[in-house]
Simulated assay, not measured.
Amino acid sequence: MADTLSICSWNINSVRARIDIVEQLLREEAPDILCLQETKVVNDIFPREMFRRMGYVHQVLNGQRMHHGVAIMSKVPVHEDDRFDWQANGEARHVGVRLDNGVRIENVYVPAGGDIPDRDLNPKFGQKLDFLERMIQWSSALDDKPTILTGDFNIAPLECDVWSHKQLLNVVSHTPVECEILGRLQASNNWVDIGRHFHPAPARLYTWWSYRAKDWAESDRGRRLDHMWMTRDVADKAIAHRVVEPARSWAKPSDHIPIITEFAF
């Protein structure tokens, strides 16, 4: 493995529909490992060839027709394909691998949770909270395994992680109950939020802007829904973290942008 390693995470919102901008990312940023969420494609018709052509010959897929789906595409060897069903319903929302240096990468797509922040009125919200509770159980039992946990968490936990804390307090992704449970997940294994490690609050660090905005950049009503956490031993090797905000303006964009962390292993 090279002395430096870069890992990118991106909710692509259909890898086949947006294969051109995925290739653009790989050409311009050239991460060693790409973790994708919301691929929306079964494994048999995943567009593997473009990734192979770009050097991503190690491919681990957990796909689902039309919905969800995660994948890890890598230039470096990866091993031990794990798939946790944290929603307990068979949805393709996680895939995990181990690098040659022993570091694990867990790629997760947390449920969005619907529009109403009440589990009685909106079962999807309850499913989201239960998903995170199962993640806490998993995280608490990790012991000393060096691990990177990344993906679309669908929660913006800090006041500065949204364009208006006051206006979004009752909006799913920034409600107090979601922020509290994500805080418990972070505390369950002392995860380092590497985005806020390199860009401390209250720095602007959005990763998502709604498609509903006519001009997302002008209104800038963003949220930080995408995260990369890691155990302290791995965080000590991180040398940079950034978001690829121009990707939100690429042709036929995802509503999320890529996040990238660089390491010196």
Rank of each mutant, 00 (worst) to 15 (best):
W250F: 07
R248P: 04
T207E: 09
S219C: 05
I136S: 05
G222V: 02
P157N: 07
D144E: 13
A141E: 15
V172Y: 13
L168S: 15
G151L: 06
F125W: 00
Q127P: 00
V171G: 01
T147G: 03
D255N: 09
L158W: 04
I194H: 00
A240I: 02
I148A: 10
A141S: 13
T231H: 00
W229M: 14
L169G: 02
R196Y: 02
R232P: 02
I194W: 01
A203V: 02
K145C: 13
E245M: 03
M135V: 06
R242Q: 06
L129Q: 15
K214F: 12
P176W: 12
E133N: 12
M228V: 11
G151F: 04
G222C: 06
S139N: 12
S173T: 15
T231M: 05
E178P: 15
V162P: 07
I239K: 05
V162Q: 03
V171N: 10
I136F: 01
W138N: 14
I148N: 08
A251T: 15
T147W: 03
D215W: 00
W138V: 01
W208E: 02
W216M: 05
D143Y: 13
E159M: 07
S173E: 01
G183W: 06
A247M: 11
S219A: 08
F131G: 02
A251L: 10
H256M: 09
L205N: 04
L132C: 12
V192T: 14
A235S: 13
P200F: 05
D143M: 14
R212H: 11
D152W: 01
S164R: 09
N190C: 08
D236Y: 00
A201H: 06
A187D: 15
A156N: 09
E159W: 04
S219R: 11
D193H: 03
S188F: 11
P246S: 10
H256I: 06
L182I: 14
H227V: 05
W229P: 03
E218D: 03
P202L: 11
K166A: 10
R204Q: 07
I136Q: 04
C179E: 05
H174E: 10
D152Y: 01
G126C: 07
E218K: 07
G222I: 04
R184V: 00
Y206A: 07
G222Y: 04
R248I: 09
E180C: 09
E133G: 05
K166R: 15
K252H: 14
A240V: 01
N154W: 09
V177Y: 02
W163D: 13
V244C: 10
V243L: 08
D215Q: 08
K124T: 00
K145I: 10
C179V: 08
D220N: 15
C160E: 15
Q137S: 14
D143E: 15
L169T: 12
S139E: 11
D236C: 05
E218H: 03
L129A: 07
Y211S: 10
